[in-house]
Design a protein around this nucleic acid. Sequence first.
DNA 1: ATAACTGCAAAGGCTTTGCATGGAT
DNA 2: ATCCATGCAAAGCCTTTGCAGTTAT
Lengths: 158, 158
Amino acid sequence: MNDRANNIRELDRADKLRMTQQRRVILEELRKTHNHPTADALYEQVRKRLPRISLGTVYRNLEILTALGEIQTLELSGSQKRYDGIPQKHYHIRCIHCERLDDAPIAPLNTLEDELYGATVYTIMGHRLEFIGLCPECSRNEQARQMAEKTLSATGKG
Amino acid sequence: MNDRANNIRELDRADKLRMTQQRRVILEELRKTHNHPTADALYEQVRKRLPRISLGTVYRNLEILTALGEIQTLELSGSQKRYDGIPQKHYHIRCIHCERLDDAPIAPLNTLEDELYGATVYTIMGHRLEFIGLCPECSRNEQARQMAEKTLSATGKG
DNA sequence: ATAACTGCAAAGGCTTTGCATGGAT
DNA sequence: ATCCATGCAAAGCCTTTGCAGTTAT
């Protein structure tokens, strides 16, 4: 991580960062998880290895690791922030029912901004894209629900 | 609004909605504003006409008006919700510095989801897209800041 | 007259922060 | 030995909610 420290612009001054147990375990656990967990979910996971860690420490380290470019903080629509162990740009797809979040298997669209040049007064810097849908489990439940509804209404009318 | 009431799925049962002064003024003020205000900003604006209205009432009505399809609740990246008097789907562009939010002059991309069919286990229902950039004012300030920095570093070295 | 709606204030959920202590360098 | 990082708890911010009183229908 040290060779990256030079690139840090988001961190104040020339902070001398320390690799504490907490920071290391938080990064390790996030890297091995593909859940895109919330801070609280990651906290619970890290707690299995470091029972005395605090939620505040998790938040602080997630912020620092994001500034370092080691991870990503995902500020998607909806309320809670999610964290992603993969720092490279990629899109996500989220389940509208259970909030499950996965990587979207689609390459970044690098020409999206082109349509805006000249059409907006903004200096365009990028975009955020997120897909919405139903995960397999919720899809199944939704289908079952609709079938049940149909049956009920048919019975009701019969 | 009554002929729309039939389409409401988000509202419980067959609620008999009432057009109160508060609801009417909230809708009017949001419609005449193109700021995409937060609930609090709209509250301040509405308060000029209805000084005794409460913030809770603003939130409650924004929720109902959204369910009615009269307005949109924008859950973009970042924390606060914004509200949009235009119910039709359209994208937005936001200033990374001052949080100013404008409509993006680009038509909805209806084929974005096509690339995901077959590639994801999700049932895709749509997407959210938002552009990031600097508004004219912050663009200007940013340029000024960079020029000052350059001058300073030159002076410092000279 | 009824029940949806309001104002008020308290509570809720997520995140940040102040402070004294601890630990990596 | 230094001072960045931690644990704890309190505070902050935005939003939702309970309740008694109000008002559109």
